[in-house]
Design a protein around this nucleic acid. Structure first.
Lengths: 243, 243
DNA sequence: CGTAGCTTTGATGTAGGTCAAGAAATGTGG
DNA sequence: CCACATTTCTTGACCTACATCAAAGCTACG
């Protein structure tokens, strides 16, 4: 039922859902639409932006510099609630583009605020998710600023794996992954050519294989070790619910 | 009076402050303490963290990797409200260290929520400030990922200048700046040695001088141009107040 | 079944890192 | 207010991680 949706599954792992919350989630969830790959669903500078709950597929948010360089800020997978910030506060300062065909529910500002006042617990969960996203951006900054390319790559893949496992996509052995090496490159501030070499290196070290739309962990433990990946990162110890 | 404080000044530029709001701000503001440079006021992993309103001095938030590398995530100046995220949601995932001696008001979780329910307009302003901080982190990621060192450096300094001007510190000619080249290096993912060379280059190009605790703009227009600095970045067109 | 988007590899270039060491500045105790 | 210590800054010589340029082989799907 509702709990089968990635969003509900994720939310439920943060807060105990009661009758009303389940109803609200299911309301938000019902109005799903499909979006084609490559067509931005959020763009920079737009006002009165909606938020989106991702139900299926992959997307990414990014910024473009005047010289055409693209920095991918984060990837979005099923269960993600994206654009909370733009909705709450003003114009969007970034773009969001689907990688695959995606299914997402558009949540208007009004809907969001109504849901918030009806079900404060849900509001907490949503804001908690937003705060998790922020932590991820910080982690990306740390990676790009301080980690060498191979470790950075391993770290990014492990982060994705962790997030995917939380919504029931993929497991310890690997996951299905529609990203191209160009996506990885723009997320990590590297060239596609170098990403390719780094992936080969990691593969030849027997740690992980990124090929044919699939990531396979050949030695998960070594990879975690190599990337210096914090296992508690993205762990939900739950939000400050007692408030 | 109250409006002379950097925090009130900044908040007032977002929302119209009424009687009650001014009172609240002034309440929060009164309980100031001094903190010595070098002693972290927030550390990673700590729970039930307070937020802080910076009244005077400079600080920075950062993360340390296991190999000792440090990534500075942002600098904090008077008027900044820091730690909103940690307070609202859980344990802190980063550290905050004062650069100079600072004066800051500690705002407990309880205080914050009380203020929020008493003065919703203030809540909006605070969340808006938090969202601005997030935008800055994204911009830092873009810089570290895509901009060459000289442009990156120019951009960071211009960002600081813009923020400082908003709270009445510094002007078009420059600002007082307690940052060392080590700070700049760790914020930008460069070595101090290279930062030094880049600063020289920028200085010799007649654009800006970073010396003796002061940044001087020798040719502001060229610098903005060189850094591809968006003049509307950090502009407050105001939050979504009509809600 | 062709053409456009990916991936892979090689040869070569360069931005920025590392190592080293002296010069300024800044701070501290007497 | 001066010696001395420590932290910053600056510069030079050299090195490496990653970029650039180029081209060939894959894959996919219209």
């Amino acid at each position: 039922m509702v709990h089968n949706s990635p969003f509900a599954r994720k939310i439920a792992s943060y807060v105990q859902l009661g009758e009303i919350e389940i109803q609200s989630v299911s309301d938000l969830y019902r109005r799903r639409r499909k979006f084609a790959p490559g067509l931005d669903l959020v763009h920079q500078g737009e006002i009165d932006q909606s938020a989106f709950i991702m139900a299926d597929g992959w997307a990414f948010s990014y910024k473009i510099l005047s010289d055409g360089a693209r920095q991918i800020v984060n990837f979005h997978i099923p269960g993600d609630f994206l654009g909370v910030r733009s909705v709450l506060f003003r114009t969007s300062d970034h773009n969001v583009e689907p990688i695959t065909q995606i299914e997402a529910s558009e949540v208007s500002k009004t809907d969001l605020f109504q849901t918030f006042s009806k079900t404060p617990r849900l509001a907490t969960a949503v804001l908690w998710a937003a705060s998790r996203d922020e932590a991820m951006v910080v982690e990306h900054l740390v990676g790009v600023g301080q980690r060498p390319a191979p470790e950075r790559t391993a770290h990014l893949i492990l982060e994705l794996s962790t997030r995917l496992k939380l919504v029931g996509l993929g497991d310890k052995t690997g996951f299905t992954c529609p990203l191209t090496q160009y996506h990885l490159a723009d997320a990590m501030g590297l060239t596609p050519v170098h990403v390719n070499r780094v992936l080969r290196e990691i593969r030849e070290a027997g740690m992980m294989t990124f090929q044919n739309g699939r990531v396979t962990f050949d030695d998960y433990e070594s990879l975690v070790d190599f990337a210096d990946f914090d296992r508690t990162y993205l762990d939900q110890d739950g939000p400050a619910l007692k408030m």
